[in-house]
Design a protein around this nucleic acid. Sequence first.
DNA 1: CCAGTAACTTTAAAAATGCAAGTTTATACT
DNA 2: AGTATAAACTTGCATTTTTAAAGTTACTGG
Lengths: 114, 114
Amino acid sequence: MKQTVAHRSPCPISRTLDIMGDKWTLVILRDITFFNRHTYAELAASREKIPTNLLADRLKRLVGAGLLEKVPYQDRPVRYRYQLTEAGQAIRPILMAMKKFGEQHLSGEGTKAP
Amino acid sequence: MKQTVAHRSPCPISRTLDIMGDKWTLVILRDITFFNRHTYAELAASREKIPTNLLADRLKRLVGAGLLEKVPYQDRPVRYRYQLTEAGQAIRPILMAMKKFGEQHLSGEGTKAP
DNA sequence: CCAGTAACTTTAAAAATGCAAGTTTATACT
DNA sequence: AGTATAAACTTGCATTTTTAAAGTTACTGG
């Protein structure tokens, strides 16, 4: 089923937020982009403990939005990996900017990866 | 009342998202950063039509997080403007990255400011 | 006194989130 | 054959957040 994301205005920033303006989408993209986590199980196991129903939902939205693709990487048994499309890879500068911001301005008592 | 934002993990990206990982925070910051909207009324009037209770809530959170400050800019009657702190100004690269992403990858049928 | 404006607050209904448990499909072990 | 394990989800339900709309407070200019 195709997931269409309605947009609030034609502004490119608000349209970007229509897709990734929530608590979890960008941490999934972070895990795929920087931490090499590509399977559902790997993503579910990451430190922030995303609820699995939200993980499933966000993956669907991201696939629907064309930022990820779900690819079987083995048969017997079939297993899937979520990988970035070209558009998905273009998220990297956003993540980098957030990383830098977090490091420079949110350093409460230690900010470390992941 | 002080608004403390609990964080999910020490990762600088997830900590950044703990503050601005939602549908509205970054559009408020966009309006202040790029469109010179600084008063509650100006922010409430922007194109995406943020519900006023959320605007009030987000402004409080941003002030609490040290990204904005609420400054009276006139007496009789007293009126306030929300302005970026130094940390708040550091959001700009994030917004720029989102703008670029939106323009390049979300150009459905026309993405224009605001 | 009355209308108008800025800056919020309140309310109730709708939607999203969070948590735990359950399901499905497939392989491996005994 | 029967049991166990694992990946990848789904379901049900309580809690929280978001939305839309209306209401409030403080002040002012006529």
